[in-house]
Lab assay of single mutants.
Amino acid sequence: KLLSSIEQACDICRLKKLKCSKEKPKCAKCLKNNWECRYSPKTKRSPLTRAHLTEVESRLERLE
């Protein structure tokens, strides 16, 4: 599967780190437990900047 097509777990399953069936409108866990089942939009991760990478590398060197 391509990364862009990976389905996201519902908010509660993601928060509780449960295996989500990803069914809509309610996944199996939410249906069974009568929880409100919501699927928040995916958040875009910002790409690493060179400055951040350099900072992490220098912190790693100090720890070694």
Rank of each mutant, 00 (worst) to 15 (best):
R14C: 00
S5I: 12
N34G: 11
S58C: 15
K1Y: 13
E7K: 08
E23C: 13
K42W: 08
K16W: 03
R38S: 14
N34W: 07
Y39R: 07
S58N: 13
K1D: 08
Q8F: 14
E61H: 13
C37P: 00
E57L: 02
L48I: 07
I6M: 15
T43L: 13
E36D: 15
E55K: 10
A28T: 12
S5D: 14
K19M: 00
E23Y: 03
K24W: 15
L3F: 14
Q8V: 05
R62M: 15
K19E: 03
T43E: 15
P25Q: 06
V56K: 00
K16Y: 02
K17P: 02
Y39D: 00
C10Y: 05
S5M: 12
C30W: 05
E61I: 11
A51Q: 12
L53N: 02
R50V: 05
L60T: 06
E55G: 11
I12V: 13
E61Y: 11
W35D: 12
Y39E: 05
E55A: 14
K24I: 14
E23T: 14
K42E: 03
N34L: 13
K17C: 03
T49I: 05
P25G: 09
K24A: 13
K26E: 11
K22M: 07
R45H: 03
A9R: 02
Y39V: 08
K19W: 04
E36S: 13
C20S: 03
L3C: 12
L15T: 11
T54M: 08
K22S: 03
T43K: 06
Y39G: 03
L3D: 15
K44Y: 10
D11M: 04
E64P: 05
L3H: 09
K1A: 11
K42G: 09
R14F: 03
S46W: 02
C27P: 05
K22Y: 04
V56G: 00
R50M: 05
C27Y: 02
K42V: 09
K26S: 11
K29A: 04
K24C: 10
L18A: 15
R50E: 06
I6A: 11
S4P: 10
C37A: 06
T54N: 10
C27M: 01
K32R: 14
K1L: 13
E57Q: 06
K29S: 07
R45M: 05
W35E: 10
L63P: 00
A28R: 13
K16E: 00
K32P: 04
C27I: 00
V56C: 15
V56Y: 08
C37M: 04
P41I: 07
K19P: 06
N34I: 14
R50L: 07
E7A: 08
T43D: 11
L2I: 11
K17D: 03
C37F: 07
L18H: 15
L31T: 10
P25V: 03
K29T: 07
C10K: 05
L15F: 12
S40H: 04
S40D: 00
E55H: 10
E7M: 08
E7S: 10
